[in-house]
Nucleic acid binder design. Structure first.
Lengths: 316, 316
DNA sequence: AGAGTTTATGACAATTGTTGTCACCATTAT
DNA sequence: ATAATGGTGACAACAATTGTCATAAACTCT
């Protein structure tokens, strides 16, 4: 590897591991300590703010925190980053305390003129829309902190039937369709549940001494694996036939993903288990699909749909 | 001046003056043409996308890469940028040709260790979910280009009733709920229409000589102002009462934003004009709202809903 | 105090890289 | 045709880089 390339690499490496020893880099780059020392001095001369301390626990450090080295983004990349940040503006609540708009304006400000022009042009022509809700999500930060640092949290949770205090340990948070959700281990139910964050009316760290679980291996993507098996009898087998239009609508529903099957011609069917307490919701959902779906099973669901249809009809 | 320093300088210089001749740089850096040629080749190998043309008026050009000057992001900002880009991974089709993931990995790679740790921790704990659709959107780029550069485009548009060729001039594109839409001026209808991009089965630039309109002032945010007044009789006055639950569902619907009114207690109502041809869609939509909505007006809509409800009931 | 760790610097020789020059080619606009 | 421009190869003079070794200094921990 040529020296020039090594210097560039070194620059990145050094910026990555803010603290390091000469020997470490020497091994990493396959050159002698002496060479690395000389390289580091050269980096210093090129403006990287290095600082060193001798002795055990000493080593090199990059000062001047969080200055990113010159990054070469392609125009496309810069534009993509811009629009990704731009899309966040639809969220009035974010788990990060800082305004994402400040990052955006910095980014914009530093970009050279013609990329700026290009972004200006595109700004009003490309958008990632998220429904703007009026709901409030004041506790995102504390929930996220709980997830990151394995903390138990007490929340006041107002589901439709009334408010209740719950002791939970968050797994993470996610936004979907303009609403924030928090999958968490619920100490009351002794299983994982998803909480809608706008229904959380207060959240404080638990100090009753409940031992946090070790959820470091449980996260958003894999949490379903850790779900307890539901008690027998509480679940129903769902089966429904879908037209093409029905399939399209169901594809948008995350909770259906595992149950949806699609045929080559675009039509499909739903098959899987659902908890009994979801019946009211499911009934309304399938009514909303209209002719797109025909429920085959369970009979209870069909009955509930009929009841609701009749009720609606009688209203007009 | 050492070679390494010269290379870094050259990188900047080359990025500043996007077009240049070898002799020019040779003079500037006080070295021979041969050396500059060798340096340029090395820059190429380091990833700077250089392109050259021989002959008079030829010379070197930097294609699309830029060096951003060192930017100081706060930790929060860096994290926000990262997650914004991260969220784009849910989109399998983007109007930008480059993978946003390449930008992401660069950004990630250059970030100093502790921010990196923080991001690693958060990566599995925060997400912005977008429904993953199977639909294909191969023509986003051409539509966007049409919007940016005022071009007329011919598309094959397959609505439910069958495919048809349309001549349009795009205003922009936007993603909502996992689907891409393209508001555009339709030369057939002589008005603005929104097209669903996955129903566009082909798209080519029009070469029949149709004069493009000047839509530079028309963009995603303000396009509704430019809508033609519909011919009398084709529009209907819509009025519906909403419960709290109904309001929540309607908030997620963009096209309702201008018609939705909310009371202090969380309930609300819908009021506004809708085109008559939307009746079937509206009927299904209000049925989907169930008890959340009570349609007051127009009678035609109520009739259509009754008809559909009866039909559904008869199915079970 | 002493052992151990770490950065810092200098000297030197072997090796490796860099540079300019020159000759020549290919392409292209005028 | 001519001139401008990039592209390549060879080569020798020169310069830089590198590893090794020796030595020093600062610091920590026992």
């Amino acid at each position: 590897m040529s020296k020039s390339k090594r210097l560039l690499d070194l620059m990145m490496t050094v910026n990555r591991k803010r603290k390091f020893k000469v020997q470490e880099l020497a091994d990493e780059f396959g050159v002698s300590k002496r060479t690395i020392l000389r390289d580091l001095q050269e980096l210093s001369e090129l403006g990287v703010p290095l600082y060193s301390e001798v002795g055990p626990h000493g080593g090199y450090q990059v000062l001047n925190e969080r200055i990113l080295p010159p990054i070469a983004f392609t125009e496309e990349e810069a534009v993509a980053i811009f629009f990704a940040c731009h899309a966040l503006r639809h969220y009035s609540y974010l788990p990060f305390e800082a305004e994402s708009s400040s990052a955006l304006s910095k980014f914009y400000y530093y970009m050279s003129g013609d990329i700026r022009d290009r972004i200006d042009q595109m700004k009003n022509r490309v958008d990632f829309v998220t429904p703007r809700r009026q709901n409030e999500f004041p506790y995102l930060s504390i929930l996220l902190d709980g997830a990151l640092n394995q903390k138990v949290i007490l929340i006041d949770y107002g589901s439709r039937e009334g408010a209740a205090c719950r002791k939970i340990q968050p797994v993470g948070i996610y936004a979907s369709n303009g609403l924030w959700y928090c999958p968490a281990y619920c100490f009351l139910r002794q299983d994982y549940r998803v909480f809608r964050c706008d229904r959380i009316h207060s959240a404080v760290y638990d100090n009753s001494g409940t031992e946090p679980l070790d959820l470091r291996e449980v996260h958003l993507e894999n949490r379903e694996l850790f779900q307890q098996e539901e008690q027998g009898g509480a679940r129903l087998r769902l089966q429904a036939e879908l037209t093409q239009a029905g399939v399209q609508q169901c594809e948008a529903e995350l909770w259906l993903a595992s149950k949806l099957h699609i045929r080559d011609n675009g039509s499909g069917w739903l098959e899987g288990e659902v908890p009994r307490y979801d019946l009211p919701f499911l009934a309304q959902f399938f009514i909303g699909l209209g002719k797109g779906a025909t429920v085959k099973h369970p009979q209870e669901l069909i009955d509930e749909m009929k009841r609701r249809l009749t009720e609606l009809l009688s209203r007009y």
